[in-house]
């Protein structure tokens, strides 16, 4: 299994507005959200980015999804550079994050077709795939209800399905189970595992240890925008529970006892 995604020294610094500085209680004008981050993902595995709030997970994934540009460093997705070939990258990934919203006015049914068209999915393929995905996530029941009238879980299901209308080979999910009850969360994690069975590559970010333990083949621990450790689960845990291993890493990195 070859490397399908390679991240080298990815760095992103945000300028903080005066309002943000006040909100965060800091006088720093800049915030380095991702700091020379490197890792690689192999074809057909589920890779987890594990880290506390504000570690830089979402920022990393947004760069991979070409929404924002890195200040320095590179990333290759299926051999395509995220800065120089954004369109090729967008074609080969499915991206999900809380920032991507669906228009309240439309129904999941309509939006599925709309995004299929934007991705250039041929009509015949679209119909069959929609049927399969809607069944799998139980969207049939609310396929014609406006998004504005859906519950959080229903919206998340619709968002997941719409992010993969083009059957991408790399799936990048940011906190896919956030805000979901255990039943809905299980539908999602089961689906991630079935994606791996289909030979897809999945990258997910989370701060939930059990999710990593349940589905990930390998994971990287991100602390303060840097990669604190990266490897298979046994490599990361070194005989301890993932949580304890993380606390040790955290103390080592930040000097803060937990």
């Amino acid at each position: 299994m070859g490397e399908i995604l390679t991240v080298r020294d990815l760095t992103k610094t945000f300028r903080l507005s005066a309002r943000q500085q006040r909100r965060e209680g800091s006088r720093e004008k800049y915030k380095t959200a991702v700091d020379r981050l490197s890792f690689s993902v192999r074809e057909g595995e589920i890779f987890g980015l594990l880290g506390p709030n504000g570690a830089g997970k979402t920022t990393t994934l947004r760069m991979l999804a070409t929404l924002i540009r890195p200040d320095s460093g590179t990333a290759l997705v299926l051999g395509h550079d995220i800065v120089r070939e954004p369109d090729a990258v967008r074609r080969s990934i499915g991206f999900l994050t809380g920032e991507l919203k669906l228009e309240d006015y439309f129904t999941p049914n309509y939006l599925y077709d709309f995004f299929s068209e934007l991705h250039g999915v041929p009509g015949e393929v679209r119909g069959a795939r929609k049927k399969m995905l809607f069944e799998r996530f139980g969207i049939d029941e609310f396929a014609d209800v406006k998004v504005g009238n859906l519950s959080t879980g229903m919206k998340q299901k619709a968002s997941i399905v719409i992010s993969i209308v083009h059957d991408p080979s790399i799936i990048i999910f940011d906190e896919p189970t956030n805000g979901l009850d255990v039943l809905t969360a299980k539908v999602v994690t089961d689906y991630l595992i079935s994606l791996r069975r289909q030979g897809k590559t999945v990258i997910l970010s989370t701060h939930i240890f059990s999710l990593v333990e349940k589905v990930c083949d390998r994971a990287g621990v991100v602390i303060d925008g840097t990669m604190a450790a990266c490897g298979t689960l046994p490599e990361l845990c070194r005989g301890k529970s993932l949580e304890d291993a993380f606390f040790d890493l955290y103390t080592e990195r930040t000097g803060v006892r937990v």
Partner: peptide, 17 residues
């Protein structure tokens, strides 16, 4: 409006020119 509601971002992650 689409910016405010975050719906344009969903369009921007697709390969539309």
């Amino acid at each position: 409006g689409e910016k405010e509601r975050g719906t344009i971002t969903t369009i921007l992650v697709t390969p539309i020119r």
